[in-house]
Nucleic acid binder design. Structure first.
Lengths: 347, 347
DNA sequence: CGCCTCCATGTAATCGATTGCAGTGCGGTT
DNA sequence: AACCGCACTGCAATCGATTACATGGAGGCG
């Protein structure tokens, strides 16, 4: 028993395939009686359109591709959830790809998505420069929106948060807490996130007259292990800073863990901040002060931009207006890693 | 400039589309000279096969669908990574779906995958009974392998770990550590993982003569919050057990966190164990003793079974042999939540 | 020299859904 | 009564790749 085709439905209903298609898609005039017959036949056979045949004919797949640097980073998975949610509202599906933080794999994924004829692509480029050619080449062929991270040398829409503003909030908060010097632990400056966040960090530190020892800028990757390693180095060098600002929560979790292991009190001796507000942030010991990204809104905005780009492409050929850059304002979430804990949370 | 089709390549090379197809797919005899011409033409035009047209014609998509209960559970994302890796070796792609722990959404996802004509499906059913009909209906139409979790009333292949044996190891370890009573914190018994693990827990506890107070079996869901809630209840009731065995690491992280918040020493007063060995397990305070699942092997085995099922389907029609049940042996990873920490790790 | 074989290649059908165009029939208009 | 327009329906082309079958030509053998 193979899956029924439109032809079988047509035969059973005693009409042509054209009519069946018209009934099922709701396009074109069909008399009420025939509609009923067709619907019943379709129902009885359990007919479902074949998305492949439809895609071939229509040139649309109702599928959006998404490429993220790493599916094991909780921030990205929650972003994916939000995007999937937003797409669901438009009756579109998500095809998710993991770039494993490798621009080469990323380029292959993008090519695959183009080949698969997705309707649009949402990408968070893993590299600030090397991701450029592939992203641009892809954007030349399909509607594309960059999310969270972006890559230089491209002209595509982008949605994310204002990292500079976020860092201003973070630094002001640390200063209020009495910090007079700060360290920065991030990934290498090869992606826009660390780059922007570091720029925001440095600028505000200067404004506030907070010292930043060049040796207190440690760049590795987005991982707990790197946070631990960097902290060990910081502490080994002596003269630790009053605060450690991290480019994401994973790093911050590593930092707090290492502080604990070395007997350094957080926030008493050193304040620590993260970025992203992943679910695990509140599990740190102490719970992390971090920057919350409005994921739902980022996702919704990205989907909206994608739809707009697709529409523009259909009507005015090549009438690409200037690309949209939507920078949302993130929120600082204050927890124990920068403020004395509530009594009940002490161990 | 639209994407080139096989017809354009054919025209440029001065041959028919059939010949182009034969050259590019390597099937059928084509003279060396023509081969060169075709290859060059394809190269110059940047031709790439259209997977949609190919899928329509061949009835194969070279894509495998995967449905997991929750993409935000680190265990599943790492399982996904492993599966994607294994599939990549066979030149297949992965279409990932999140069921949001809802059998209804899960059923829709499965239906979508069938409609999309994937070559096979890997699913970790979110519910031990309600997932049944959809999984069985899907398995009737496509090769399907259940992974990690499984659902009753179905006859499909399955790959996972031997939860009973794992729990035996856990319990023996706790007993060695001096535990004479134990609590169990899991999700509701509506999925096979908790069910099996609880069964293994209870059986071995009996064997060892360890007491299990009925009030010390707490069932909620797979989340940190539930672990915290359950612990609060356990402690509030007084007379806490010597050990708390958790059905997964997220729960265990909640448990240890709550213990810390309530000033209960782990492992001094209470030993705690997790399950899955997610990356965050070692970040607990103290780091979690847990059961490591051999993800790579599970994934590889699942892919192998899927390929075998697909092959069987092609040749012998309906000759489905008995379904394979592959239970791999997991490993106990001992960390500080059941053993006194190394001096350096003390806070 | 004639016939047979086999290789290389082209022609056209096929997968399933959609849609432009054409045809049919009915009701209304002059 | 002849004609027009409209609503409904069917025919057949189309999307792009694959492949069964047909064809043409070259070479071998008697």
């Amino acid at each position: 028993m193979q899956r029924p085709t439109i032809a079988q439905v047509a035969q059973r209903a005693g009409v042509s395939t054209a009519t069946v298609s018209r009934v099922l898609s709701g396009r074109g005039p069909v008399s009420a009686g025939v509609q009923r017959k067709v619907r019943r036949a379709a129902e009885e056979l359990g007919y479902q359109v074949d998305p492949i045949a439809r895609a071939l004919r229509n040139g649309r797949t109702d599928t959006v591709g998404m490429v993220v640097p790493s599916i094991s980073n909780p921030f990205f998975t929650s972003l994916v959830e939000s995007v999937e949610h937003a797409l669901g509202r438009e009756g579109k599906e998500l095809f998710l790809c993991d770039a494993r933080s490798d621009p080469e794999i990323e380029a292959r994924r993008l090519a695959t998505l183009v080949a698969r004829n997705v309707d649009g692509i949402i990408v968070s480029p893993c590299h600030g420069t090397e991701s450029g050619p592939a992203v641009q080449a892809t954007a030349d062929r399909l509607p594309l929106v960059q999310l969270d991270r972006f890559v230089g040398g491209t002209s595509t829409d982008w949605v994310g948060v204002d990292d500079i503003a976020a860092m201003r909030q973070v630094m002001d908060h640390l200063r209020e807490g009495g910090a007079r010097s700060a360290a920065f632990v991030g990934s290498l400056l090869t992606n826009s996130s660390t780059e922007q966040r570091f720029a925001g960090f440095r600028r505000r530190a200067e404004d506030l007259g907070m010292g930043v020892d060049p040796d207190h800028v440690l760049l590795g990757d987005y991982s707990v292990v790197w946070g631990e390693t960097a902290t060990a180095r910081l502490l080994a060098a002596g003269d630790p800073p009053d605060a450690i600002v991290c480019a994401d929560d994973l790093i911050a979790l590593g930092v707090t863990r290492a502080c604990r292991a070395h007997g350094v009190d957080v926030p008493g001796t050193v304040q620590v901040t993260g970025y992203d507000n992943i679910d695990f942030a509140r599990l740190g010991e102490p719970a992390l002060t971090t920057v919350d990204q409005p994921r739902e809104r980022i996702a919704a905005e990205a989907v909206r931009l994608l739809a707009a780009a697709a529409a523009a492409r259909d009507s005015a050929a090549g009438g690409r207006g200037p690309s949209a850059h939507v920078a949302l304002l993130p929120t600082l979430v204050v927890r124990e890693s920068t403020r004395a804990a509530a009594p009940a949370s002490r161990s």
